[in-house]
Design a protein around this nucleic acid. Structure first.
Length: 236
RNA sequence: GGUAUCGCCC
């Protein structure tokens, strides 16, 4: 079953959702699927926007004595959220709680993201506040990065910097993604030197810049003909 | 062997 599951996952990652589904069907002739293989399939179906089939898994799983667990729900909630199905997100959050499965920081981070992608940052902030005062679902760097990205996508740099400060105060360290978000923002809006400064700060703080950090920063600097800095980054 | 943030791909 592990081998089948790995292969199904591989097909999904190779944009072969139909083949992945076929292999799942074939596997069922020899092995009873388990919760992990159901989750892998769930993700593939959702990524292919086949939400009706994905939800159909709820009816098939009991036949194999499988019950949805926290990872299954989190996967579903995240994909529904990315698709902007906020109402469905709420529904399954309630459903999992009703089954005694408590939403964790991953669940809440996906909820925050769903509100951000549907342009409800104010509501996302309400959820973030709830997380901050909670004991069980303290926001982490992922959660804050999600909000920062939402602000930067709308070119609200002041607000994004506010969230950055807030996460630092709360003991969440900005990571590679946090810095890349700001590097991309400054590069996109034509402030290549600011991007460069962020990259420098990241390195100084001991976070290794990724190939992407350099590429985006170089792009921003080139737009402004900052040749010396570009050459310096290429050399590095 | 399964879940959330940038980039990458599209």
């Amino acid at each position: 079953i592990v081998t089948y599951t790995n292969f199904i996952k591989f097909l999904g990652q190779s944009d072969c959702a139909a083949e992945a589904f076929e292999l799942f069907v074939l596997m069922k002739e020899y092995h009873n699927p388990d919760i992990i293989s159901f989750t892998v399939l769930l993700r593939i179906l959702c990524d292919s926007k086949m939400f009706d089939r994905a939800l159909g898994l709820f009816h098939e799983m009991p036949y194999y004595h499988c019950k949805p667990d926290i990872i299954f729900y989190n996967t579903l909630i995240d994909k529904l959220g990315e698709a902007g199905e906020v109402k469905q997100v709420r529904k399954f959050c309630s459903q999992m709680e009703a089954e005694g499965i408590h939403a964790d920081v991953v669940t809440y981070s996906s909820v925050v993201k769903s509100l951000c992608v549907t342009k409800k940052i104010d509501e996302a902030l309400v959820v973030l506040r709830f997380m901050e005062i909670s004991r069980m679902v303290q926001p982490n760097t992922y959660t804050y990065n999600t909000i920062i990205k939402a602000y930067l996508d709308r070119e609200l740099i002041k607000e994004a910097l506010g969230v950055l400060g807030r996460m630092k105060i709360r003991g969440c360290k900005p990571d590679l993604c946090s810095y890349n978000l700001f590097i991309k923002y400054y590069s996109d809006v034509g402030q290549g030197m600011e991007a460069y400064i962020v990259l420098r700060k990241m390195v100084r703080k001991g976070i290794e810049a990724s190939e992407g950090s350099y590429r985006i920063c170089i792009y921003g600097l080139m737009k402004q003909s900052k040749v010396d800095e570009v050459l310096q980054l290429i050399k590095e």
